[in-house]
Computed example of a mutant assay.
Amino acid sequence: MTAFHDLHRSGLLILPNAWDGASAALMRSLGAKAIATTSAGCAWSLGWPDGDVLPTERAVQMCADVVRAAQGVPVSVDFEGGYSDDPAEVAATAQQLVEAGAQGINIEDGGGSPELLAAKIAAIRAAVGGALFINARCDVWLRGVGEAETRVAEALRRGAIYQAAGADGLFTPGLTDAAGIAELTGGTDMPVNLLAYPGLPGAAELERLGVRRLSAGSGLASAAYGRTAALAKDFLQDGASEPMGDGALSWGEMNALMP
């Protein structure tokens, strides 16, 4: 087991999601206990769309960049669907992520079958052993699978399949209501991970409900790009300099964060 595993044993692990080395260094400086990546933010930062299309060599290099900037803080990589439907190929790429320093991954079922994700998880576990924390992402809420009242049961069904294949945690982005959260955490012995989302209870309530991990997802990257868009729009219109200094970190502050 790794330090990253240990962070899921009690309390609520709040995970900020980095999208490059600089954002990882910033989050480390703010005291993050662990850092995750956001597939969307990482893809955007490299000029690619999100959605399992980033070349695997770029994903592995991004992992190495974030691990270097994290300076010993555990890093978990958003592995999307593994960038392949071939479990052997997925496992080979996961091995590269481990070699690059990842202590955890998220891997999602997306629009595929639970059985396919289970096969990928089993192949990864066989390739890398028990040290890697495998967080199985169940997309029944994001994809609107079935009726709303059946989704917790479906997530628990899928979670059991993923756990049997070797998953360590269950990630259910889009679940926000307290009753559903309590039903989910009460129905599995895997640490449950939720995504920061409108309507989600606060950290103290989530911990009380039994949630063990809360991820920012692409929210921080989207906010940063939104702020950049607003500043760039003003700059392009009238060359305004002053707004760029509002809340900005100085050159020296940013440079000092880099390893």
Rank of each mutant, 00 (worst) to 15 (best):
H5A: 11
D6P: 05
H8K: 04
S10E: 15
S10D: 15
L13N: 00
I14Q: 09
L15V: 15
L15A: 13
P16H: 03
M27H: 12
R28I: 00
R28M: 11
A36H: 04
T37Q: 09
S39H: 12
S39I: 08
A43Q: 12
A43V: 12
L46E: 14
L46I: 08
L46R: 15
L46T: 09
P49L: 06
P49C: 09
G51T: 13
G51N: 12
D52E: 15
D52M: 12
E57D: 15
M62D: 09
D65G: 02
D65C: 01
V67Y: 05
A69H: 06
Q71W: 05
V77D: 15
V77K: 14
P87V: 05
P87M: 06
A88R: 15
E89D: 15
E89G: 09
A91G: 15
T93C: 12
T93K: 15
A94D: 00
L97E: 07
V98L: 09
A102I: 01
A102F: 06
I107A: 08
D109Y: 03
S113T: 14
P114G: 06
E115G: 10
K120W: 01
I121H: 00
I121F: 01
I121N: 04
A131I: 01
L132C: 05
L132A: 03
A136V: 03
A136Y: 08
R137H: 09
R137E: 10
C138A: 09
W141M: 03
L142C: 10
R143N: 10
R151D: 02
E154V: 05
A155R: 03
R158P: 06
R158W: 06
A160M: 03
A160T: 10
I161P: 00
Q163T: 11
A165G: 07
G166K: 00
L170F: 09
G174S: 09
G174W: 02
T176S: 12
T176W: 11
D177T: 04
G180I: 00
I181T: 11
E183R: 13
L184F: 06
L184I: 03
G186L: 07
G187W: 02
T188A: 09
T188K: 05
D189K: 11
D189E: 14
D189P: 01
L195A: 05
L195P: 04
L195G: 12
P198T: 04
P201I: 07
P201V: 00
P201M: 04
G202M: 04
L209D: 05
V211N: 05
V211P: 07
S215K: 00
S215V: 03
S218K: 01
S222A: 13
A224M: 08
Y225R: 08
Y225Q: 11
T228A: 14
A230H: 00
A230K: 06
A232P: 02
D234R: 13
L236D: 03
D238F: 01
D238W: 07
S241Y: 14
E242P: 05
P243H: 09
M244W: 13
M244S: 03
D246W: 04
G247L: 07
L249I: 10
S250I: 06
W251S: 14
M254Y: 10
M254I: 10
N255E: 13
M258I: 10
M258N: 11
